[in-house]
Design a protein around this nucleic acid. Structure first.
Lengths: 123, 123
DNA sequence: CTCCGTTATATATTTAAAAATATAACGATA
DNA sequence: TATCGTTATATTTTTAAATATATAACGGAG
């Protein structure tokens, strides 16, 4: 019989089980917490560059995240519009909203999983 | 009602839910797949440096992983011995074996979680 | 008491990732 | 048609991470 974990770890250590979760295709991550937040901010601001700025992310990286997402979906999740009164902007589609919502639900289940695992550590 | 995910993603994309899992204390990761494999190889080879070489990891990083682990446990998981016939070596303790075993079990549950989530994508 | 290969540690170098910078196209508006 | 800020893209620079290199201590075996 193995020792229990809580008898092994230092008592004062506030240890928890943590992790991250994403969607991947062909081994490449294309959807996770970062893209979700980015989509939300694009929806709010109507601009990829402004969303990126809010997240202290380079425009390039933001664009790459958006692009990677668009590559995995039948219809784009972000529709860009260049030129015009404000120089341009971007809107997110219903598909993007569905992805955001899906991620929220999945995240809830993952959080529950992590909490259960953390609890198990202490038994 | 939101669109279903499988109607959004490209049909040919072999998408799956993936993730990673670790133990952290004070926000610092100290136990995950890397350290587990390292411990196993130290057990096999009796040497941190040999284990590191097998994993194509620098000795420094290997030592840091071992050290970070030892810092979180009451008793060390790896006991080093310097000098001697082979110049030295390291053995892992019962505590290390328990950690390895614990990780295996946790990993099983996580794999199940990921499979369920991947399945859910396709509904 | 010399020789090993390993641990332990510091320092230097390399590499890869990220960010910063630069530039052109775009189109509504004034 | 000149202006504006954004998208899109390439190129350069910066930063951080990882690796490589160097060095000393160690102790059993020959």
């Amino acid at each position: 019989m193995n020792k229990k974990i809580k008898t092994i770890l230092k008592e004062d250590a506030r240890v928890k089980v943590s992790g991250s979760l994403w969607l991947e295709s062909d081994g490449k991550h294309f959807f996770g917490p970062g893209p979700v937040e980015l989509l939300e901010r694009i929806a709010e601001t109507g601009s990829i560059s402004e969303a990126a700025k809010q997240m202290q992310m380079s425009y390039k990286k933001a664009w790459e995240l958006v692009n990677a997402l668009n590559m995995q979906t039948k219809n784009p999740v972000v529709i860009p519009r260049t030129g015009g009164e404000k120089g341009g902007g971007s809107i997110i589609t219903e598909e993007a909203k569905a992805l955001i919502n899906y991620h929220r639900e999945m995240r809830k289940r993952f959080t529950k999983f992590l909490e259960e695992e953390t609890q198990r550590l202490k038994i």
